[in-house]
Design a protein around this nucleic acid. Structure first.
Length: 169
DNA sequence: TTAGTGATATCC
DNA sequence: GATATCACTAAA
């Protein structure tokens, strides 16, 4: 009995949302009308200006503006000129928090994931509760393990060591 | 291990 | 205007 997560789900601290999203179904309706469902197997939390790994830690800019929206907003970002990364904004408005969807089952890597789902910058600032992209809970539950975040060598040692990555075990 | 890629931020 | 940076991937 799958049901679509509503906006309230995302209006919680990013760590809680990041952990809760692991094991959920990411659903994408392609422009062609085709429906794709993938189970989320890995997420990472990026939490506020205090977090030196977070894009918004230096303050609000044109790019990070999206992270200051209310939870439930989609933040899509182009990395290394070729990969779109999918994030979901969490928490209250004015707090720059987001969860990076890092991988789904059968899809390791955030860049491959967005390629498979045809996620591009067009979805940036959209709603994760809309008709193009949303998340469902089908009652599946599993063991979630934590780990250090990766690919954030520019962050402080302290922040690199935070166990803010959540994986399906 | 390393090259490729382009938007963004930061520095003239 | 110019350059440095980057939450990655594929090929070797």
């Amino acid at each position: 009995m799958a049901y679509k997560l509503d906006q309230d789900f995302y209006q919680r601290p990013c760590l809680a949302v990041a952990k809760a999203l692991v094991g959920k179904l990411l659903v994408r309706r392609l422009p062609s009308g085709e429906l794709l469902k993938l189970r989320i197997s890995e997420t990472e939390a990026y939490c506020g200006e205090e977090d030196t790994a977070c894009h918004a830690h230096k303050g609000r800019t044109k790019r990070t503006e999206v992270m200051y929206q209310v939870g439930g907003t989609i933040y899509v970002y182009l990395c290394y000129g070729m990969h779109w990364l999918l994030n979901i904004v969490t928490g209250e408005a004015e707090t720059p928090e987001a969860v990076l969807i890092r991988a789904c089952l059968e899809q390791n890597g955030p860049g491959k994931l967005t390629k498979t789902l045809s996620v591009t910058g067009e979805l940036n600032r959209g709603s994760i509760c809309g008709e193009e992209l949303w998340i469902e809970d089908d009652g599946y539950s599993c063991h979630v393990v934590t780990d250090k975040r990766v690919g954030i060598g520019y962050a402080s040692r302290e922040d690199q060591n935070r166990l803010w990555r959540f994986k399906l075990q």
